[in-house]
């Protein structure tokens, strides 16, 4: 074992880690609002809203992320008619995929809020969307924070998949360094430790918040 290889290549590796974090944060920032809208659609009484959201969510959830990334990597340039760059293609694939998972979390969060809350909201003269925005979603959000944090950890783990299209995130940077230095043991163990620290911290936070009382 020669751990020097990590110190020497640390700036390059950290650039990769920064890319992973950037990717994860951007994906969460885009996927979450989309998911909020879709979750409301998923429990709508109007079938022409409910069915398309349900079909979308189920298609995304029954495919592996890596395949979705391939799909978008192939489709986005064809659909837009011009190359948009690897980062954008991968981002779009990730956002669409994780929006489906966030939708399901938000939906079950909304459904954890008692039905009488909605009735109370409507009966005080609020419109359906006002009830959703001011009464249901704030309570639902609080209930689903642990699940959301867990999902954010999964998004961070998922960014490793960008490796397959050659985006220079943390795993891909590690891979590139191993190709050059022929020191896979130290480098992959280092990568595993870094991922573990970030993800374990996230898991602990989620568990801590889970202990708080859930509003019903």
């Amino acid at each position: 074992m020669d751990w020097n290889v990590i110190i020497v290549n640390l700036p390059f590796l950290m650039k990769g880690l920064w890319m992973s974090i950037k990717l994860a944060v951007l994906v969460i920032c885009f996927a979450f609002p989309i998911a909020c809208v879709m979750a409301v659609g998923r429990i709508s009484n109007r079938l022409w809203i409910r069915y398309p959201s349900a079909i979308f969510v189920n298609i995304m959830r029954s495919n592996p992320l890596i395949l979705i990334v391939f799909w978008f990597f192939f489709l986005v340039p064809i659909l837009t008619g011009r190359p948009v760059g690897d980062f954008a293609s991968v981002m779009i694939g990730f956002v669409v995929f994780f929006a489906a998972y966030f939708t399901e979390i938000i939906r079950s969060g909304i459904q954890s809020v008692g039905r009488n809350q909605i009735q109370a909201g409507l009966s005080t003269g609020l419109s359906y969307f006002q009830t959703m925005r001011m009464i249901v979603l704030p309570q639902a959000l609080r209930n689903m924070i642990p699940a959301l944090i867990t999902e954010c950890v999964i998004v961070f783990q998922g960014t490793t998949i960008a490796y397959v299209v050659g985006l220079r995130e943390f795993l891909n940077s590690t891979f590139l360094v191993t190709e050059r230095t022929l020191r896979p043991a130290e480098l992959y163990i280092f990568a595993a430790i870094v991922y573990f620290i970030v993800c374990f911290a996230g898991s602990l936070l989620a568990r801590q918040l889970e202990k708080r009382k859930v509003i019903t």
């Binding site: 490793t160 490796y163 043991a185 163990i189 991922y195």
Partner: peptide, 19 residues
């Protein structure tokens, strides 16, 4: 459980394969 859940599967695959 914590060990295997908090390291991305792709990293685990690489460790089993290369390391």
């Amino acid at each position: 459980v914590e060990f295997f859940r908090n390291i991305p599967l792709l990293v685990q695959l690489f460790i089993w394969f290369f390391v």
